[in-house]
Nucleic acid binder design. Structure first.
Length: 263
DNA sequence: ATCTATTCCTGGCTGC
DNA sequence: TGCAGCCAGGAATAGA
């Protein structure tokens, strides 16, 4: 499940292999992964030059000489170079000197060409590294929903998903069901630090491979070995040895230490 | 306006 | 061994 660190890893890897190249042609095998270009994505992309490659939250952006290709990897999306198509290959992009293959088992991901960054993506919250302590604390006080649900909401900050939310809440010692509005300045600051530090460490380790995440070369990340709570139900908390508990918050599997993270 | 529940999708796992 | 049934979850959407 690619979140910010996984997408950042992919973008850093693929940027030098894409920038300056042209999309000679694109082929779509599963229109389900298209958003608003049903039937016209290939035409929009044919002959376009890839100028720069970037990341916006969990989105990969290919800035073209005309418009932008927005790629969201969803749960199981992969961008791979020069692999043979499989039954999960949803699209291919034939470039000057390589072929970029988009695989996506569950098809929660999406491909979208747009003349400019689509509004709904442009309107997402800031990168976690950009928001200030004051802004973050003020935003928390405005919402009565659980802190877990609020961090997952891409309109607050963009790029953080289920894994890194659980990891950050463990680091900050905050119970996932805590009402966001009840988190005052000091704890909010601790939480924002936890979020940015866990994201940075995950980037250093090339992301987490818990189910089937791999980078553009098919390599797994290494940060899953450093998870403290995610996917560790019943195992001892690294801080206090209490067994990690798994509950459901905001319709998501949620892992926390019942002793370190009191309600 | 804010929040919650539902929907999409398929491989992998569980239990009979 | 086979297979039905359930689960994982990002984000759009519908509903409260």
């Amino acid at each position: 499940m690619p979140e910010l660190p996984e997408v950042e890893t992919i973008v850093r890897d693929i940027a030098p292999r894409l920038e300056g190249r042209h999309i000679q042609f694109a082929e779509v095998y599963s229109p389900l992964v298209l958003r608003n270009n049903k039937g016209s994505l290939s035409e929009a992309l044919a002959g376009r030059k890839i100028v720069t490659v970037g990341r916006h939250g969990k989105h990969v952006l290919l800035h073209l000489d005309r418009g932008v290709l927005v790629i969201h990897l969803g749960m199981t999306g992969k961008l791979l170079f020069n692999t043979e198509p499989t039954r999960h290959t949803r699209a291919i992009f034939s470039l000057d000197d390589s072929t970029l293959v988009y695989d996506d088992i569950r098809m929660f991901g999406s491909l979208e060409w747009s003349a400019a960054l689509p509004e709904r993506i442009d309107r997402l919250g800031p990168e976690p590294f950009s928001i200030t302590d004051t802004e973050f604390a003020a935003a928390l006080r405005k919402h009565r929903t659980s802190i877990k649900a609020l961090i997952l909401n891409q309109k607050l900050i963009r790029g953080v998903g289920n894994i890194y939310t659980d990891e950050a809440l463990w680091r900050a010692q905050i119970h996932p069901k805590t009402s966001a509005s009840r988190i005052r300045k000091e704890r909010a600051l601790r939480l924002l630090n936890a979020i940015t530090s866990v994201l940075n460490e995950a980037i250093e380790h090339r992301g987490s491979s818990v189910s089937d995440y791999v980078d553009a070369e098919g390599r797994k990340g290494g940060f899953q070995l450093r998870h403290n709570v995610y996917g560790r139900e019943g195992k001892p908390c690294p801080r206090c040895e209490t067994p990690i508990r798994r509950i459901v918050v905001a319709q998501r599997g949620t892992h926390y230490c019942p002793k370190c993270q009191r309600a």
